[in-house]
Simulated scan of single mutants.
Amino acid sequence: MQQRLDRVRVVTFAVLITNASAALFLPAVGLWREPEPARQAVGALGIALFSAAQVAVLYTLVTPWIGARARRWARLGLAGAAAASLPLVYPVGGGWPTWSWLAACIVGLVPVLTGPVLAAGLSAVTIALALLVTPGPPADTLIITAGFGAGLAAINVLHVWLWDMLLQAEQGRAAQARLITAEERLRFARDVHDLLGHNLSIIALKAELAERLAAVDSARAGREAAEVRRLAAATLVELRAAVYGYRQAGLREQLAAIERVLDSSGVRCTVTVPDGDLPAQTVLAAVVREATTNVLRHSRARWCTLTIEHAAGVVRLTITNDGVPAGAAPDAHSDGLRGLADRLAESGGVLRTRAGDGEFTVEAAVPSTS
């Protein structure tokens, strides 16, 4: 999804720049018509400053990681370049409405930089200045600044709005994935709380009783202390069983949850699982968790497939995803993958990884008796 978002961002920026450059080409006609070299140079400076400031502002519009301070400086730079362009550019052109075309660019930009009321006010001021300083019929100037500027504004507003909508959709998918993960953690936390709360309360009461009896009835105090030890050991066993069950129970449920997380993150996920019971659930669940975490953390995947096959006494799990950067290769020193390989080896299994053609594959094979 991130890769598609980057492509859309580049395309949106290119469209905005192309839209802006169409208006800047016509002021260049005024430079070509200007007979005085000094005015021509000054006019070129004004157009260059405005063009650079315009590109900087458009870049901030489609770059979400730029901070508010940089955005503010870019807009102040555009305001300064626009103000400076008036005395630098309007005398240039020998009767050509050079500055009117720059004024059209300003009218086309302000709606995407500020609110509608302020944008309307700035546009009106810009059009009035163009009518004041531009030679020739006022109707022509009005068509250039108001008409052409409104067309530029419509294109800019549309593309910036589409980009903002796509960005918000991506942020929503990321938030949904985080929410699913948080809900699963809360569920496990509630299970652990329910398990430990009762037993720890009893242990605390019996430990307090043993403390009080120590001075008056040492034999009973000893029995209570032994009961505390037994309860603590039993609680530890239950806790380990709960954690083990949490990691093991319901490989199918874990696969379904992982499919939801990947789908909500913009990764099209396909899960293929055979009917019937799945042997080696514990170790396979660990592989699934680690591999899908890597999909979200280390790739820009658009799709991911998880396939489990059970044949000839071997359970084979294959996880493949795209979005792997060119030249990437499995990290032999990855703690997660190395830990999985060691764990599989203890069960008589094997872990293999491979990368190529923009795809990454994790294969785990475990004897079905594990």
Rank of each mutant, 00 (worst) to 15 (best):
M1I: 13
R4T: 15
L5N: 10
D6C: 14
T12M: 07
F13P: 02
F13E: 10
T18M: 13
A22L: 14
V29P: 01
V29K: 09
L31K: 08
E34G: 01
R39M: 10
V42P: 02
V42H: 01
V55H: 03
Y59L: 12
T60K: 03
A68S: 13
R69Q: 13
A70W: 10
R71S: 04
L86V: 11
P87T: 03
G93S: 07
W101K: 02
L109Y: 00
V110D: 00
P111D: 01
V112W: 07
L113C: 10
G121C: 05
S123Q: 02
S123D: 02
A128V: 07
G136C: 06
P137L: 12
L142M: 11
T145C: 07
A146I: 01
L152S: 03
L152K: 03
I155L: 14
N156G: 03
E170I: 09
E170H: 14
Q171R: 14
Q176P: 01
I180C: 03
R190P: 01
R190F: 09
D194K: 15
G197C: 12
S201P: 02
A204T: 10
E208W: 12
E211W: 10
A219N: 10
R230A: 14
R230T: 11
A232H: 04
A234S: 14
V243Q: 11
Y244G: 13
G245T: 05
R252G: 03
Q254S: 07
T270C: 08
P274H: 06
G276T: 08
A280L: 08
V288D: 01
E290H: 08
N294A: 12
R297W: 12
S299G: 07
R300T: 14
T305I: 08
E309R: 15
H310M: 12
G313Q: 12
I319M: 11
I319D: 05
A332K: 13
S334R: 05
R338L: 13
A341T: 06
R343C: 06
A345V: 12
S347Y: 10
G356F: 06
G358M: 11
E363Q: 15
A364I: 04
T369C: 07
